[in-house]
Design a protein around this nucleic acid. Structure first.
Length: 596
RNA sequence: GGUCUGGUAGCUCAGCUGGAUAGAGCAACAGCCUUCUAAGCUGUGGGUCUCGGGUUCGAAUCCCGACCGGAUCACCA
């Protein structure tokens, strides 16, 4: 049982005996005792000081006197704060319980079958490679899935691939016109990058055509519509929709190149999906749903044939669902995807990991799904995260300021390799393969932690000119703490005896005590991260744990400790710190190395 | 303009469900490796928590207003 849960009734009872008033559990407020005072946990007496009709310092003193004994060894009252010292045997029992729990940090949602949460993330377009914005999305999505699993959900990770539309036609057209049969095989280019290059090429040629038309006296608006290239692309989209075999074959071929490229990127990033949906499969379903809603009277058709939802009753405007020509829009596709998913899985909660620029879209989607009768519609969660900004603003593909995901990861691994060179090479029996593996784990660890440690809701800054740190509050710092512990455990050998001969009489130093208390906090961090959808909570926890351990490690010898009980206790501590670090980092999708 | 969101040290960020003297890292400076991995540890300097009101025993935290930034309000996706 949690310490607070044990103490709350005791405090309630003490207050009743002393002052004859009943207080609610909410009025019993605890906080961690500040380092400058003696004690483990502090009761804030202000919430019931009025009812007691005495000065805060007096109330603290009297309540302390009433509580002391047994679990509470000592107390001291400072103004309205009652600092309580908990018996060390309690903390040692806690540590032993953690040590015995092989799934420490895995929480339960109560009895019965686990509810199902579907988490959608990544959602790439097939016309260009993944960039830094996707990296944040993928890392957040994967981490949230892991965190919710730890919170007792069955999680299905899903991806919706935007594989149709005019943007794909642009790449296809440019490839047809300027590609000269270039393929990933004959050029050695990664498929998604190859397609991305032709997307850029289209834009270059298109712009040139606009310029030319304007030179002939056409205004910009008209030129943008009349340029031959854009007309060809539009014609291609129509053919695609009509299932033209030639266009479809080209589309299929180029998409396969892209998917092969994406797979590589996802693999390197360490993210995965349980089920992938494609918009080319879902957009027609969406049209069907809109037609159904229309028949049901949820939506209405305008004279030009377009279909709309009136959201006035929800305080919003009107929203287009089908164009006058019958083609679908973004919203149509998301409705279709939702329907397919609902047919495929008994979804209890649907989570969309999508940037905050689309808050309006998901607000509307939620309303529309609800109207169409999807149980998860009303309750859908838009896990809305902030943009990754560069020093001079947003990333813009046209201005070439996009930070490519593959390049970024490769750079991080190369940096890790360079930084670790002197150190890793001194490790005994190190092989080139292991050194490379360490660089991979550490480089990606630095990148992932850098991104996940910041509050997902906030915009964050990435400066490509400055390399991501490997010292201080970083992934490698935490990984290093883990590697150090592994080193100690290896040296301790097979016969680690972490049982205490008499736990009752063991004494703990301040650092040992804080470390145990930090370990005890882990489940609360997992719970909070789940409730708030925030991997940052886990990142901050893991950092604090690593700090506590390093401080402990600096002050105490583990293996050279003469006292067998102390040695055993410290080994047990080290083992469990490593266990929790590994577990917490896994929730972030970060691996930990045994040596570095 | 409406709506949403942010403003904390030179920089990047914690803290925000109100509690004691606002914390880290980076950068700067000064120390600690014959002892379990120095990607570590210890210390110094660095703050009008954007500003102004309000609520409260108590406000970085809650409320109102102002200022500054970002997003959004498409027959784009």
């Amino acid at each position: 049982m949690k310490l607070e849960e044990i103490l709350i009734p005791k405090v309630q009872e003490a207050v009743k005996t002393l002052y004859g008033v009943e207080i609610t559990p909410a009025q019993v407020q605890f906080q961690k005792t500040r380092a400058e005072f003696e004690g483990d946990i502090t009761l804030v007496v202000f919430p019931f000081v009025k009812a007691a009709r005495k000065a805060p310092a007096m109330v603290a003193q009297e309540v302390g006197e009433a509580l002391v004994g047994g679990l509470i060894e000592k107390y001291n009252a400072v103004q309205g704060f009652l600092n309580l010292c908990i018996a060390q045997s309690y903390w040692i029992e806690q540590l032993q319980a953690i040590a015995e729990n092989t799934e420490y940090g895995q929480l339960s949602r109560g009895e019965g079958e686990k509810p199902l949460m579907m988490v959608e993330y990544s959602s790439p377009n097939t016309n260009k490679p993944l960039h830094l914005g996707h990296v944040r999305n993928n890392l957040l999505g994967y981490s949230i899935a892991k965190i919710q699993e730890a919170n007792g959900w069955n999680v299905v990770k899903t991806n919706i691939v935007n594989d149709r539309g005019i943007h794909i036609c642009k790449s296809m057209l440019a490839w047809q016109k300027f590609g000269n049969g270039e393929t990933p095989e004959n050029s050695g280019k990664k498929g998604d990058h190859l397609i991305g290059d032709y997307y850029v090429r289209f834009d270059v040629e298109y712009k040139a055509q606009i310029k030319e038309l304007m030179a002939q006296g056409m205004d910009e608006e008209t030129a943008k519509k009349e340029a031959p290239l854009i007309k060809e692309a539009q014609a291609m989209l129509v053919k695609w929709e009509q299932n033209d075999p030639e266009v479809r074959a080209l589309w299929q071929k180029m998409n396969e190149w892209v998917y092969a490229g994406f797979d590589e990127t996802y693999k390197q990033m360490g993210v995965s999906f349980d089920k992938i949906y494609y918009e080319s499969d879902t957009y027609l379903v969406g049209k069907g749903e809109v037609e159904r809603g229309l028949a049901k009277g949820d939506f209405y058709r305008r004279e030009d044939g377009s279909v709309w939802a009136d959201l006035a009753q929800n305080g919003l405007d009107e929203k287009l669902l089908l164009r006058a020509d019958g083609t679908s829009v973004y919203m149509t596709q998301d409705i279709g995807t939702a329907k397919l998913r609902f047919e495929d899985y008994p979804i209890d909660k649907m989570v969309y990991v999508v940037g905050n620029e689309q808050e309006y879209h998901f607000k509307v989607l939620s309303i529309l799904l609800d109207r169409l009768g999807f149980p998860f519609g009303k309750e859908l969660v838009h896990f809305s995260y902030g943009m990754v900004e560069l020093p001079n603003g947003k990333m813009k593909s046209r201005e070439g300021t996009v930070v490519d995901a593959d390049d970024l990861m490769a750079q991080m691994i190369a940096d890790a390799k360079e930084i670790s060179k002197d150190k890793v090479n001194t490790l005994p029996d190190i092989t080139e393969a292991e050194a490379n593996e360490i660089a991979r784990v550490v480089g990606l660890g630095a990148l992932k932690y850098f991104i996940l440690k910041v509050d997902p809701r906030k915009n964050m800054l990435f400066n490509p000119e400055e390399s991501i740190d490997f010292n201080g509050n970083t992934g490698p710092f935490i990984q290093y703490t883990y590697a150090r512990i592994q080193s100690v455990l290896r040296k301790a050998g097979e016969n680690i005896d972490s049982r205490l001969s008499n736990p009752e009489s063991a004494t703990l130093s301040d650092k040992e005590l804080s470390l145990i208390q930090r370990l005890v906090d882990y489940p609360a961090a997992v719970r909070q991260a789940g409730d708030e959808f925030s991997p940052a909570v886990i990142a901050n926890y893991a950092y604090a744990l690593a700090c506590d351990f390093n401080s402990f490690y600096h002050d105490h010898s583990i293996l050279n400790e003469a006292d067998a009980d102390k040695r055993a206790l410290r080994l047990m501590l080290a083992q469990n710190v490593a266990k929790v670090i590994k577990s917490a980092m896994a929730l972030l999708g970060i691996e930990v190395p045994n040596r570095m």
